[in-house]
């Protein structure tokens, strides 16, 4: 900055001006160079994703018919569909969200707002950050021992949902803490000064202001869970399943049923994986079509996260 601001002593000599111009030109060159490099780096990611997605579209778009969404798997590629897979994905994600989100958000708020700063909380913090990076297969092994056998949940929607909930919780805890930390201290202090309890401060001030950040973390976590295969194969997801779990709502008393929690299941990525490894190219089109569905679901969730953040941020004024 200093070299760009005019200075009397330099203006006095002609060679000084030339030097400065050369200097500025050099810096500008670096500026342009870095901008070009940055653009290249950005486009590598975007173009790769785009190329993959277009490839999937070319291979699979002709399979994206209503029948594809309403048919069970079949030995005939042209009759096979993803009904049991997408219903399974929805049910598993429902369990994951209902169980994982409240626990993870509470944990994040507790760690940030309530927990005393001592070595125990430091230890917990380090562990949570590390857990966010643990490979998903490890959660699968844990879940196989804990949910499937020790707790006797079996190879069910419930076990799968709990496994993925465990997997995404660290991500949500970290996101929650960052969102909560971003709320200015002055707001808390003002509320305390007015005599509010810690819970009142959290409920009425901290939480509303941090919802955009928390929601982003939640949806990024769920978007990760939706594409997960390894832990679900470990706990025994099925590959061929040609029926739907019992519906959670019915027209006869008691109207609500939780039998679906105990049902066997398959999910979209597993169905896709199975089709990819089949002989014959007809099944590969199905796999590509299932891939499109997964990618679109993930993109929709991320778009929803961005929209939510935008809408909620507009309401914040401090």
């Amino acid at each position: 900055m200093a070299s760009l601001s005019p200075s009397i002593s330099i203006e006095a000599t002609g060679s000084g001006v030339a030097d400065i111009r050369a200097n500025v030109a050099r810096r500008r060159r670096w500026d342009v160079l870095f901008a070009a490099f940055g653009l290249l780096a950005t486009s590598v990611g975007v173009i790769t994703l785009l190329a993959l997605f277009i490839d999937l579209l070319i291979d699979g778009y002709h399979r994206l018919t209503p029948d594809f969404f309403l048919s069970f798997p079949s030995r005939r590629a042209s009759e096979a569909g993803i009904l049991s897979a997408w219903v399974g994905t929805c049910l598993v994600m429902l369990v994951t969200a209902v169980v994982g989100v409240p626990i993870a958000v509470s944990a994040g708020i507790y760690l940030e707002e309530y927990a005393p700063k001592n070595w125990v909380t430091t230890l917990i913090e380090i562990n949570v950050s590390n857990l966010a990076a643990v490979p998903s297969i490890v959660y699968g092994l844990l879940a196989l021992g804990l949910f499937v056998y020790a707790l006797g949940f079996g190879q069910s929607v419930l076990s799968a949902g709990l496994t993925l909930a465990l997997m995404i919780m660290p991500v949500i805890v970290v996101a929650t803490r960052e969102a909560v930390r971003a709320v200015p201290h002055a707001i808390r202090e003002a509320a305390y000064a007015a005599g509010a309890t810690r819970w009142q401060v959290t409920r009425d001030h901290v939480l509303p202001y941090s919802v955009p950040g928390i929601a982003t973390g939640v949806i990024i976590g769920l978007a990760r869970a939706i594409g997960e295969t390894a832990p679900l194969i470990t706990i025994g997801a099925l590959t061929f399943i040609a029926y739907l779990p019992d519906p959670p709502l019915s027209t006869t008393p008691p109207y609500v049923s939780f039998d679906w929690l105990w049902s066997g299941f398959t999910v979209l990525p597993i169905q896709m994986f199975n089709w990819v490894s089949r002989p014959g190219t007809a099944f590969h089109a199905n796999a590509a079509a299932a891939g499109i569905v997964i990618v679109v679901l993930t993109l929709l969730m991320n778009a929803f996260a961005i929209y939510l953040r935008y809408r909620l941020r507009k309401k914040i004024n401090w």
Binding site: W86, V87, C90, L91, M93, L94, A97, V98, V101, A215, V218, I219, L222, Y243, L244, P245, D246, P247, P248, L249, S250, T251, W260, F304, L308
Partner: peptide, 20 residues
């Protein structure tokens, strides 16, 4: 909202299917 999204989709799919 996200619960509504997932819950709605799942419940809708299951209601649409015949009562098992």
């Amino acid at each position: 909202m996200k619960f509504a999204l997932f819950g709605g989709a799942a419940a809708g799919a299951l209601l649409a299917s015949q009562v098992a």
